[in-house]
Design a protein around this nucleic acid. Structure first.
Lengths: 230, 230
DNA sequence: GTTCCGTGTTACCATGTTGTTACCGCGCCA
DNA sequence: TGGCGCGGTAACAACATGGTAACACGGAAC
């Protein structure tokens, strides 16, 4: 179980590392926001302990970037104990928020609680099936009920995954851009390109999509689900 | 999204209920440990907010019993702020632990964080229904009782939303202009344009509106409601 | 090096959306 | 009776958006 600790106070970082190692976790560390993102991408840890007050890139920004790409559990640390700060942190996607100073043992307990919940929930399978369409994330392939598998590019997988994970819901253009390219990444032109390319691959008739619906002025939605609205 | 609140302090229980209801949750309550278990079995809520200091059956015991049967998320409340207490609570299977006193808004944020992790879709329903007309804000569509959905433009959605949210009331021309275009945005000509276009889309007979009524010299009102709001 | 693939860029067209102007009819009031 | 303000209707221009296509670039594979 690998944990990334992002904390610029070296002494505190050491204390946390020590405690968590003793609790049986694999620990990697970063001391500023940019390094954190690099480490995260390279190691893909199972959980991130994230200080908010960081040099180079703010902790909230780091959280946003990680959330744009993955669902890695995040526990925030901060001296800010105000309600607004905590609510903001949680709404940005954190799983827990601890106010400094805190006791290492409580951190361990909270990490375990979050990981327990993730373990109970997360499907380790790299496959995702909605309606008649199946996406295999590890092989970069989509398959349509008995038909031959279709090879997808990494970006196409990201897009299709985002849409399928939120099947039936409308995802905004900007949100999708963030999800696929990360904040500061793409633009509308590239998104429509990507949607077009994906459609030509997976739609039987791209002019009349049965999977990816356009909601003009808003975004796109994955359909073909029995959506079970009610 | 149904939440069971277990809290013996009736005043606090009411405050929490009120806040969570306002946040859009379905609330059921219990005021002692045994009642909590009964309620839990009968209603199988999506999450439990559990005070630890309870009559009849201790909160920790309640937690244990629930955990023995199911994986329902649990957020513990307690005046005990010691590390041992928190660690014990989390190790017993709680997903989060909040020390009293706490702010309602933080509780809402933490509930959302846990539910998000569990994978619950808590889309606060982007739909708005008044009388026989239904507006889907996320899809920019209006639907009239069984008939096909009608695609609306963003501005039309803004206008219709304003009218429907205040169904039965008269909204002034200037107020509507502000709502739709923002201060410094539109003029009367554009509003009447927009009303006209909206009417041609949603009214069966635009010359005799059944939804959008004109109040000359004042503004517009959404009708077709059994108004009688309770 | 050459080829191929994934990606980014530019361009074009059709359509949809919004802003503008104009005209009509009606009730009001001098 | 004749302006005047108001609201409904219409036509049109300006602009934004989405789909399509062709091409350029860079890195990986051969």
């Amino acid at each position: 179980m690998k944990i990334l600790i992002v904390e610029d106070d070296l002494a505190l970082s050491d204390v946390i590392s020590f405690t968590l190692r003793r609790a049986g976790f694999d620990i990697i560390t970063a001391h500023d926001g940019l390094a954190a993102l690099t480490m995260w991408e390279q190691h893909l840890p199972d959980l991130v302990v994230l200080d908010l007050n960081l040099p180079k890139l703010d902790g909230l920004a780091v959280c946003k970037r990680i959330r744009a790409q993955a669902d890695t559990p995040i526990i925030m640390l901060s001296v800010r104990s105000s309600d607004e700060a905590i609510v903001q942190g949680l709404e940005l996607g954190a799983d827990d928020y601890m106010v400094k100073p805190f006791s290492p043992s409580q951190l361990v307990a909270r990490i375990r609680a979050v990981l327990r919940r993730v373990g109970a929930t997360l499907t380790p399978s790299s496959e995702l099936m909605v309606g008649t369409l199946q996406l295999d994330r590890s092989r970069n392939e989509a398959q349509c009920l008995g038909q031959a598998a279709i090879r997808l590019t990494p970006l196409e997988v990201r897009l299709l995954e985002a849409l399928m994970l939120n099947a039936g819901q409308v995802l905004s253009t900007d949100g999708l851009i963030d999800t696929v390219w990360g904040v500061e990444g793409g633009d509308r032109t590239m998104l429509k390109q990507l949607v077009y390319r994906l459609r030509t691959k997976i739609e039987p008739d791209p002019t009349q999509p049965i999977y990816i619906e356009t909601i003009p002025g808003v975004g796109y939605a994955f359909i073909n689900a029995k959506s079970a609205k009610g």
